[in-house]
Design a protein around this nucleic acid. Structure first.
Lengths: 118, 118
DNA sequence: CGATTGGTTAAGCATAAACTTAACTATAGG
DNA sequence: CCTATAGTTAAGTTTATGCTTAACCAATCG
């Protein structure tokens, strides 16, 4: 797992803003145009554009311009990478609990016949 | 799912920093003291303390002080909440694909016997 | 063509983040 | 007691974020 951390940095940072999460929630239902995404949000169009740029930089969305309208769509693979990191932590944590369990079991077994040892 | 977004804000923001993720990776293996966490990190102790405060504020770790050493441990439930949001997006996206699939199927069926008029 | 609609860029600003150093507190150990 | 260790707080600096307004381009459409 050799540090390509700036990738995860961008990913989690992109997810840390409620407006950006709202955009992703919207896009996970269907592709939407830039102004369509902006309509429900309490901010200017350029602000939305900046959020879209952050999401794009994180690989969370892709977009294509046809005529004068740019349509954005979610890129689920990126979410997968975030989930992967989280899952790895959980796995490690569970293994740690396993090792702890084994250790405690060993302790109680050694406690049962404690004539063994110095 | 009524917007308790500032909760997720803190969560994802906490995960967006490589130092904080490094701390979590460490803690998912075993509990560690503050200075133990600081040792491998390229920054001052107070900086680490600030990161720990962010992680604590996001609910990602808990810590307890005994004597003069504070020992930190991971709080896996918080990671679960992040994962939950991600999974909800994936689920929506898959449902969207299902609906798209049905639609396309409908189209091709209607195309097969196109004697049925408007 | 001329006006609109949809999007984009640039510049500026206020706030928040991530650090630092310097001081200070509180336990341990000799 | 005296000093080193472990942590904490405060204050200040630099950079990044999130937003705004004011132009500016480029497809449509009457």
């Amino acid at each position: 797992m050799l540090n390509q951390s700036s990738d995860l940095d961008r990913l989690f940072h992109a997810l840390s803003d409620p407006a950006r999460r709202a955009i992703l929630e919207r896009l996970s239902l269907a592709p939407v145009s830039v102004s369509g995404l902006a309509r429900p949000l309490p901010m200017s169009l350029p602000a939305v554009l900046q959020h879209l740029h952050v999401l794009d930089g994180a690989g969370l969305i892709r977009s294509e311009k046809v005529g004068r309208v740019r349509t954005c769509a979610i890129e689920p693979a990126a979410l997968g990478r975030a989930e992967q990191w989280i899952n790895a932590r959980r796995t490690e944590w569970e293994h740690r609990l396993d090792r702890l369990g084994e250790y405690l079991e060993t302790l109680s077994r050694e406690g049962a016949d404690d004539d063994r040892g110095p």
